[in-house]
């Protein structure tokens, strides 16, 4: 055998697959895979979370009450407790016969218009929301709606979805999980489903009707939100509350069905002190 100078073999060691093709295939496959897992996880959470006994919920979350010394309550920011709002919530909650919660209400220092129900019986209202509210009835409905989330135990569903989704992402994602987590949490985790919102709306209307003898002003806030709804499609999708116009219609239909009055004189706005 004689020595013949040859060049290195180019054919076998590197696959002839374009990296971008590989990337696209994998990203699409991975998204489908992740979507299926997340849907499974959130359906599981939706089924299991409401089954958590109240006692357990209270035991776990009883320490989590708004406290003006806490600069980062639930990762939201500074939340100061408000006795005026608590009085209104308690007034409304009286009309929920078997109310097991002792509600605490706090004001979140934020310009966003938002209200939320947290496990353990805490209702948070943003200062931005309080700024645009013009009557007691309007505010009462927002609070009654949040009480509705407790009634339907939606607050636990949201938390359960959040936990399970993070778990799924942590297992699957690895390096990319941080980036994915931020997207998924805005898209699905923090939000309630439209059905949950509609149910909470109906419960809220019932409380408001029981308290004031009419449901006037309940849709005011949504009308204001609808006017501001020149946001992008993505923002509208990621908003935790469904598009206002549809909600207003559904609420009005529900009120009409029960012959509740919705054009009575509104009570003046409460004076609420907050920093």
């Amino acid at each position: 055998m004689k020595f013949k100078a040859k060049l290195a073999d180019e054919t076998v060691n590197v696959s002839k697959v374009h990296p971008l093709k590989e990337f696209t295939t994998l990203i699409i496959g991975f998204s489908i895979f992740l979507a299926v897992l997340l849907i499974l996880a959130s359906s599981f959470a939706n089924i299991v979370a409401p089954l958590v006994p109240l006692k357990t919920e209270k035991r776990i979350f009883s320490g989590l009450k708004p406290d003006s010394t806490n600069e980062n309550f639930f990762g939201l920011g500074k939340v100061s407790p408000s006795s005026e709002l608590k009085a209104l919530v308690d007034k409304l909650a009286k009309h929920w016969p078997q109310n097991p919660y002792d509600f605490s209400v706090g004001i979140l220092d934020s310009n966003e218009i938002n209200a939320m129900a947290l496990p353990g019986g805490t209702i948070i209202v943003s200062s931005g929301l309080l700024d645009i509210v013009d009557s007691e009835n309007e505010l009462a409905f927002v609070l009654a709606h949040e009480i509705g989330h407790f009634h339907n135990r939606d607050h636990l569903k949201g938390l359960g979805r959040g936990l399970l989704s993070s778990l799924v992402l942590g297992i699957v994602g690895g390096q990319s999980s941080k980036a994915l987590n931020s997207v998924v949490s805005t898209l699905s985790v923090s939000s309630y489903s439209r059905r949950d919102e509609a149910r909470a709306d109906r419960f809220g209307l019932e409380l408001v009707q029981a308290q004031y003898g009419n449901v006037s002003g309940s849709t005011e806030l949504f009308k204001k939100l609808a006017e501001n709804e020149n946001s992008t499609l993505l923002e509208r999708y990621t908003r935790s509350h469904p598009i206002s116009k549809i909600r207003i219609q559904e609420m009005m239909d529900y009120a009409d069905k029960h012959n509740w009055l919705r054009k009575e004189k509104l009570l003046p706005a409460l004076i609420i002190n907050f920093d």
Partner: peptide, 11 residues
């Protein structure tokens, strides 16, 4: 490369 490989590692 690492990102694509990480995705590949799942499947």
């Amino acid at each position: 490369k690492r990102f694509v490989a990480n995705l590949r590692k799942v499947f």
